[in-house]
Amino acid sequence: MNKLMILVAAVTATTLVGCAGTRIDNTAGRATVYEDARQPGKIQGVGVESQDIMAVTDQMMRDMLSNSMLVSREVSPRVIIDSEYFTNESSSRINKNMLTDRLRINLNRAANGRLVFVGREYANMVEKERELKRRGVVDGGTIRTTAATAGADFRLVGRIMSLDKMDTGSQERSRYHQITFELIDLELGTYVWSGIYEFQKTAQDDVVYR
């Protein structure tokens, strides 16, 4: 009799546990909202974020446009701005193209012909098309033909660097970023313009950057 009661109790308990295990949390989540990318959003960490990318590129662009060695030449200089020689040596995960592309695009729009940008990143694409034209597979286009593609006068180089500190007691961490931008004269090898952007952030960092 005693054994039977124990068996019934065990079966009942198993059934109840089984019922409890089928509960699924399907409550509504937080609705997606647009945020102003120019300022810190709801999720913030110590890494390079949208407001930093926008601020640094805006500051560098205005500084380059105020340099008379760059924008006041009789013939507009040709410039390469891409991420080929722009390296990320920091502990922050970031796509470097976000910085170089934004800088080039906004600079190209603002310079209005005072600087000419060479798309060296797409040189292979241009060479293929030129080859097709030269072989007569396609016609010569409507604009012009040139002996060669554009050589550049200046090229962007730079680095993203960081210095990390962590308080093991409070788990707070602090990251100092230093982002350098420089233009190299592609004949002489001299620096014709330099810019630097620095910032430091502290947080109890549990944000994951992807």
Binding site: R38, Q39, Q51, A55, D58, Q59, R62, F199
Partner: peptide
């Protein structure tokens, strides 16, 4: 007239 030249926040 606005030139649509608005800087980013500078700290």
């Amino acid at each position: 007239a606005p030139l649509m030249d608005e800087s980013m926040w500078r700290r």
